[in-house]
Write a protein that binds this DNA or RNA. Structure first.
Lengths: 112, 112
DNA sequence: ACAACATATCAACACCTATTCATATGTTAG
DNA sequence: CTAACATATGAATAGGTGTTGATATGTTGT
């Protein structure tokens, strides 16, 4: 019996790795990561994201298209505006795990 | 009482976001992600990584430098060879969560 | 219908980065 | 010390990508 659970998708597959890397790359841009974080709490419109993060609506929309295509966020039309929110809770888990990683890696010697 | 635990690092900070994005960006390259995955199981030398992934030792070394600097992997010299392994278990958690995300996001309509 | 607003798309540029090849550093055995 | 191996580093290049500004699409009101 192994302690670690079997992953849902076989990691060895080329396609799976590329798909995973695509998602990580999407979160690897500070602007896009900010947009993701802004959408995690509550659905928010494109204009409000732009205003809160001090970005042009055009840029926000560009990033939202990528995030929507990658199924990180989903957009729901409500009148003129479109409200974006996280598609599921996994992204928050991923971010929390990474925050935990950043928070405590300083127990090894820092030899250079 | 909130259901979600407080993150270890305040996400709102600019530096924290950039640091997180840096880590995600590192995992956002398929070659680097493959290297990370190869090191997760057991410490492995640069040459063995290159051989297993069919990459040049030079390229592997380049990526390992970045991953070591970002504290994703650690290198331990053993004779002529240097064995790389994950610095902590968080990276595996991050990947597992992302795999879970990839595995089950197909419950919403796929309208295009 | 039109006007006003919200969002999306297009093209272009500047910047970054992954890869390759050559070379350097470091380690062990003889 | 030299030779052979393992890894690291440097420069150069090709391809990718974030950002901007202009324009287009879509929606609501009058």
């Amino acid at each position: 019996m192994k302690t670690k659970r079997q992953p849902t998708v076989s990691i060895g597959s080329e396609d799976a790795i590329v798909q995973l890397a695509d998602l990580f790359r999407l979160m690897g841009d500070p602007t896009r990561l900010r947009i993701i974080l802004t959408c995690l709490d509550v659905p928010i419109s494109v204009g409000d994201i732009a205003a809160r993060l001090d970005l042009s609506p055009s840029l926000v929309s560009h990033h939202l298209r990528l995030l929507k295509a990658a199924r990180v966020l989903r957009g729901e039309r409500r009148g003129k505006q479109i409200f974006y929110s996280a598609l599921d809770a996994h992204i928050r888990c991923v971010i929390d795990d990474m925050v935990a990683h950043v928070g405590e890696p300083l127990d090894i010697e820092e030899a250079e």
